[in-house]
Simulated assay, not measured.
Amino acid sequence: MQILLTGATGHLGTHITNQAIKQNIENFSIGVRNINKVSDTWKQALEVRELDYFNQESMVTAFKNIDLVIFIPSIIHPSYNRLPEVENLVYAAKIANVNHIMFIGYYADQYNNPFHMSPYFGYAERLLASSGLNYTYVRMAMYMDPLVDYLPELAELGKLIYPVGDGKINYISRHDIAKGIIAILSNQNLLGQRYLLSGHTYSMTELASILSNVAGSKINYDPVSLDTFGKMYDEPKGFGPLLASMYKAASMGLLEQHSSDFEKLTGDQPETFEHFLQQNY
């Protein structure tokens, strides 16, 4: 089976590519927009193809002789700006006779989820379902990883300010998400399913306690309002309200989702937040 991973030089794509090389996944190649970002180590280990999510013909060319495309969406916003990329994915897959698409989605995709990117993920899954293509849909919980860089700011502030209230959030590391994806690639019988790669669920009070232990200084949970949070982190313009809408979803209990898919796929337990931060902070 010939495999192509898109978005390979992004944060999650890097984890997947490194694990694919380490696990000797056969016939694994990557598709990127800027080949200059690909390391010499990767170029020696696998095939690199150039593609642009917003250029159909580049995707058709990159998908030639590929059986399975693993698609990682871009991070552009607002959500309607992303729609052409998934439409181009389906178009190119059909023209190039791709047999299967693995789409990497996000768990904030319920019909009543206020997260500004939720419409995109809802549309993407329904487009795949109606496309006639074979597909695997992998939803992932919230990344742990950004807290590593954010922790010094929180330690200086002395408080965790996420506007979540009594809501809880399920977190997983990018490394564990990649591990789950590699497990699927290692057994073709696992394709064609809908998965949720989740880790551990925390209240914000519990998360503040973990952050305090790792930072070595007291961090209390003291949330600001959604509007205040959006204004504090509105760089680039529009990103603050986007983040705030995600935490509104958490306050509604929509980001507590958990499944045992990771354990079933890998045979391991997902990493805890405290251990992850201790290893990476």
Rank of each mutant, 00 (worst) to 15 (best):
Q188N: 10
E153P: 00
D52F: 00
L46M: 12
E235Q: 10
S245W: 02
W42Y: 12
S74T: 15
E87W: 04
F262M: 02
Q193W: 00
Y281S: 12
T17A: 15
D52R: 00
S209M: 09
A92H: 06
G192N: 12
N65E: 13
D145T: 06
K248Y: 08
M1P: 03
V38M: 11
E50A: 04
R139T: 14
L196I: 00
E263Y: 11
I66N: 09
L255E: 15
N220S: 06
T14S: 15
K43F: 06
I181A: 02
A208C: 02
Y162P: 05
N170C: 13
K159I: 12
E235L: 07
I70W: 04
K237I: 07
F262V: 03
N134L: 08
S131D: 10
V60M: 04
A20E: 06
Y107D: 09
I76D: 11
G132I: 07
T205I: 09
Y233F: 15
G158V: 03
T14V: 04
N170S: 14
W42S: 01
V164D: 08
V86L: 14
L254F: 10
V86Q: 13
T228N: 07
S58K: 03
M144K: 11
E85P: 10
G267W: 00
H175C: 00
A208F: 02
Y120I: 01
T61A: 15
A108G: 04
H77V: 13
I210F: 09
L127C: 07
I161A: 10
L277T: 05
T41G: 03
N18E: 15
N24Q: 15
E274Q: 11
E26H: 14
H175K: 03
F229P: 07
I16W: 01
P152M: 11
G122C: 05
S173E: 07
